[in-house]
């Protein structure tokens, strides 16, 4: 392993009910990089995120964050190793306001019962509360502070989820289809926003995304999964031109780009439903 990698998966296997959902998967993510994890529906991308964040444990293989083997570490403590994530189906807390959802994102930075008993949302001026408000304002979401999240437009909810994840001040941020359900303008805005977040070099992104334009514009590296196996790895352009990759996306002739746009249409249709 190179000391520039922040995440390393080593021969990971995961089996659900007799199906090898992740099959001998190994890859590395370079520190400070923006790396994409792509592949057709059901390839196992979300499962990889679930394994990294500890929702499931792998049947075999190891996961390293920097120098640390986190394979057997409980899900609740992985965020303290600098891993935060968003979810493919936005999972904000409907009982909490937008601001409270964002304050929840700071939870891992706050140890012990005394910290937990600070009235972070009682009086304005509390440092945690102001930090959360600033985070929302930076993302252009200041107007939604007091709103109930359940009633907000889907694109706004996705952006709130991103702010919440950033509140943990992660070293490695896992984004599961951050552009799904966003229109073209919103997608471009998101891509610029994510690019800016990484400017300091302290944040590494691992992004699952079907939109290859988005991936090409944002990421410098890509890993391609198909049926739980890694079939290609390299720059987004190289990966897009790879014949194996083109084959898994709707047969030989189709490129990932057209498959991705069809997938996006499908997402929107299910959104409306």
């Amino acid at each position: 392993m190179t000391d520039t990698s922040i995440l390393r998966l080593d021969c990971i296997h995961k089996n659900f009910g007799g199906v090898n959902v992740i099959d001998d998967l190994s890859f590395e993510v370079q520190r400070g990089s923006r790396t994409a994890l792509i592949g057709p529906n059901g390839a196992g991308k979300t499962t990889v995120f679930n394994l990294i964040s500890g929702v499931f444990f792998p049947d075999s293989g190891s996961i390293f964050v920097g120098e640390n083997d986190i394979t057997g570490i409980k899900s609740g403590t992985r965020i303290r190793h600098g891993i935060a994530r968003t979810f493919q189906n936005v999972r904000l807390m409907p009982h909490l306001s937008t601001l409270e959802n964002v304050i929840l994102g700071q939870h891992s930075r706050n140890r012990g019962w005394l910290g937990a008993l600070q009235p972070v949302n009682l009086l304005p001026g509390n440092r945690w509360c102001e930090e959360a408000r600033a985070g929302l304002a930076d993302a252009g979401l200041g107007d939604y502070e007091r709103a109930s999240v359940g009633s907000l437009p889907y694109g706004v909810q996705r952006r709130i989820e991103l702010v919440r994840a950033l509140m943990a001040q992660p070293k490695l941020l896992l984004l599961d289809e951050p552009a799904a359900g966003l229109n073209a303008a919103e997608t471009e805005e998101l891509q610029i926003h994510l690019f800016k977040l990484c400017q300091s070099g302290d944040l590494t992104l691992l992004v699952v995304e079907h939109d290859m334009h988005f991936v090409g514009a944002l990421c410098e590296a890509a890993v391609v999964l198909s049926f739980g196996r890694k079939i290609a790895e390299g720059t987004p352009d190289a990966v897009r031109d790879n014949p194996d990759v083109q084959e898994v996306y709707l047969g030989k002739s189709a490129s990932p780009v057209s498959a991705a746009s069809e997938k996006k249409e499908g997402d929107r249709a299910s959104q409306r439903a």
């Binding site: 899900s75 965020i79 979810f87 999972r91 009982h95 909490l96 929840l104 972070v120």
Partner: peptide, 17 residues
């Protein structure tokens, strides 16, 4: 805040630490 988060989504609350 964490209590209500636990009610809404135990899994995500856990992942938040």
């Amino acid at each position: 805040i964490a209590l209500r988060a636990v009610q809404d989504d135990e899994r995500v609350a856990d992942l938040m630490g």
